[in-house]
Design a protein around this nucleic acid. Structure first.
Length: 286
DNA sequence: ACCTACCTGTTT
DNA sequence: AAACAGGTAGGT
């Protein structure tokens, strides 16, 4: 489910509702989801909520100490604001009760972590237990930032024999793309997903960077893509599913040229592309 | 650079 | 019954 635009949408939806409130209680209903100490979790003030790739970071403080609660939603995780009359469901694994919000009767008491497939994780890092999740320490640049430019993308793709699709899914190359936005970015750049990373030219790297940024920004504007489970903190769906050009559209006509969208497996993931708009240059040469 | 495992639910 | 699903860690 949640790739960068969805995680960013969750962040924006939660921020005004949780910022300035503190943790009153953490209810751990399922083992294995919560990583870190499960005692002494009360009294932490939520100062900010930020995002890095697909990770959500809750910045906490308590007297002079600071702590970090990091959430990864993986495939089907959701963070939902819920009032106390909402009973935990079958797949509600963690519930965080927040202190009363001053002057705000509209703010729910609980933030619930709901995840049918149970792939999602929450890390609680403190002074005693400061280890970031491995995957987070190795993330590449944020795509929507000056850190991400065509030269860097070219340099990182040049070394790779793997497909462009596989390279874009590699979080150490650039952070936050998943199966949907990798396919949509390659379409927007007019690049055949199976081409080896090392076949990318300088101008193509420039086009790809611009395509990635444009697709992600438009998806964020639409509050993300809801295929099935995804929803923001208020359980609202996204709208970018109506703007998809290739993802999930195999067998349907390309919205640009009318050619039938095709599907193949790359890097173990279903990949959709338009054979006309994304020609296989290698194939044509051969 | 690939596979499989981790899980449950939905679709074919 | 089998395939598939937004992701990633771990093994080969």
């Amino acid at each position: 489910m949640p790739e960068l635009p969805e995680v960013e949408t969750v962040r924006r939806s939660l921020l005004p509702a949780v910022c300035g409130r503190s943790i009153a209680y953490v209810e751990i209903r399922t083992q294995g989801v919560w990583l870190g100490s499960d005692v002494d979790l009360e009294g932490w003030l939520i100062r900010d909520v930020t995002r890095r790739g697909k990770y959500l970071l809750f910045h906490l403080s308590r007297s002079a100490q600071s702590a970090l609660m990091i959430v990864h939603l993986r495939m089907t995780g959701r963070l939902l604001l819920q009032s106390c009359d909402v009973q935990p469901q079958k797949h509600t694994h963690i519930r965080i009760k927040l202190s009363r919000a001053d002057d705000r009767t509209d703010c729910p008491e609980w933030v619930s972590f709901v995840d049918p497939r149970r792939f999602g994780r929450i890390w609680f890092l403190t002074g005693e237990n400061p280890e970031m999740p491995e995957g987070m320490t190795r993330l590449g640049p944020e795509p929507i930032s000056v850190d991400f430019n065509a030269d860097l993308l070219l340099e990182r793709t040049a070394k790779r024999q793997a497909s462009l699709k596989a390279v874009l899914l590699d979080q150490t190359v650039v952070a936050g793309l998943g199966n949907i936005y990798a396919d949509e970015s390659l379409f927007a750049a007019g690049l055949f997903p199976a081409r080896p990373g090392c076949s990318l030219s300088g101008p193509e790297a420039g086009r790809l960077r611009i395509a990635i940024v444009d697709v992600l920004e438009r998806a964020i504007e639409c509050n993300g893509t809801t295929l099935r489970d995804y929803a923001d903190g208020w359980n609202r769906k996204g709208r970018f599913q109506d703007c998809l050009m290739v993802y999930g559209r195999a067998g349907e006509p390309c919205r640009v040229c009318g050619t039938t969208i095709r599907r193949m497996k790359l890097a173990g993931r279903s990949t959709c592309w338009c054979p006309f708009c994304q020609p296989d240059i290698q194939g044509d040469v051969k």
